[in-house]
Write a protein that binds this DNA or RNA. Structure first.
Lengths: 209, 209
DNA sequence: GCGGAACGGAACGAAGTATTCCGCTCCGCT
DNA sequence: AGCGGAGCGGAATACTTCGTTCCGTTCCGC
């Protein structure tokens, strides 16, 4: 080979990321989207997809796993901040910004997870909890780590057709939520339990999409 | 007839509400649910459904319109409260409690609305804005009426398999959101516009489900 | 008893969709 | 120069899923 990559091989490699990006966009918009929509979005044929992934489930799993890795990355990066609350805030902003929550949570249950994924999920959880605990003293006392998941879920629900604007609006409402987290006063109703949060990962295909 | 209603006729009338309730539950859990799921949930045959509704769209429309009426009812009821903030809070709690938001917003676009529905939607909007304006002085200044819709959307996103528990959790996070609404400090990013909020009603079938 | 309202549920037909397959292109190496 | 095959596009296949229709049955009300 002359250059590191050239011609066909280069194109193929570029497709790797093109397809993944397309899949990300498509499945972010609709988890039940047909696989053909991904190919269309990527501007490739269906073959290019099946050459890389064994099937839809495989693609979904890869996508989700990537999301998990991004989540971990954001958490680690944010954890470096010495200011406890700033670290937590930065973490939340990072996760919301990357729209990772939809990737991980909303796709869960559409495939059977790898053992490695379970491990990564556990690690992601630990990191998030650590970040939470550090910031906890500055929150209302009843807040628990499981709340973080729900907060992220709520941010992910903010969604309009314009993607860039969606990101803006999410930042806006994340700010509202975080301010709410720091407010005083008692919170009604008991906090969510771990089991209540993780139900998506356990069931094969929960009814409530 | 001996009693106001008896036997078959009574059963039929009871089915009216049974079916609607079933439809409510089923489509609340999954807007794309098959119509047969509704019949199953209601414990009736498909015929019982088609006897009452011209088709799926008709059922969806009815369901949505009912939601709209409930929304209006909650707003009117809450508006009677002389305390401005209490009225607003009560309104939000009522809407969240009734899970009306999913009924109206998430079902929009799956059918072509009636003229009457448009009118009701307009009225619902007015009422909500009035409630908001009354409470506005006690919120952070940048809050706008369109924020209310988004807040409700976020509450609707809180969802776990256990229905009763879901209601509890929604109350919890609504409290967080409302506290966040009253917090001080500037909010990042411009507020949503009316158009950004109402996109679901205008497009025939938006891509981002 | 009879007529028909109200049903249950099988049957039908139209979509939609995951996956396979076949033929074509064009790079990379000899 | 040419060949082997990686990479690919997209039609064809084989199902599955649903909305809707239809027909036979039940049983109330007169």
């Amino acid at each position: 080979m002359t250059s590191p990559k050239a011609g066909r091989a280069r194109q193929a490699e570029r497709n790797n990321v093109t397809i993944l990006a397309a899949a990300r966009e498509v499945f972010l918009a609709d988890q039940r989207a047909p696989i053909s929509a991904v190919a269309e979005r990527a501007g490739v044929g269906i073959s290019a997809l099946y050459r890389r992934y064994a099937g839809k489930e495989d693609l979904l799993r890869t996508l989700c796993h990537d999301g998990l890795r991004i989540f971990i990355g954001e958490a680690e990066e944010a954890a470096a901040d010495p200011d406890d609350w700033a670290a937590f805030e930065r973490f939340m902003q990072g996760v919301v910004e990357a729209d990772v929550h939809s990737l991980t949570v909303h796709l869960a249950g559409t495939f059977t997870p790898t053992e490695e994924m379970r491990a990564d999920a556990a690690r992601a959880n630990e990191l998030a909890i650590a970040l939470f605990e550090r910031a906890h003293p500055q929150m209302r006392a009843e807040a628990v780590p499981a709340d973080v998941t729900m907060l992220l879920e709520m941010c992910a629900a903010v969604r309009i057709p314009d993607q860039a604007r969606t990101a803006q609006l999410r930042r806006r409402y994340l700010a509202v939520l975080l301010d709410g987290l720091r407010a005083g006063g008692a919170l009604p109703e008991p906090a969510p339990t771990i089991a209540e949060i993780n139900w998506r990962w356990s069931t094969p295909k929960p009814e409530t999409e």
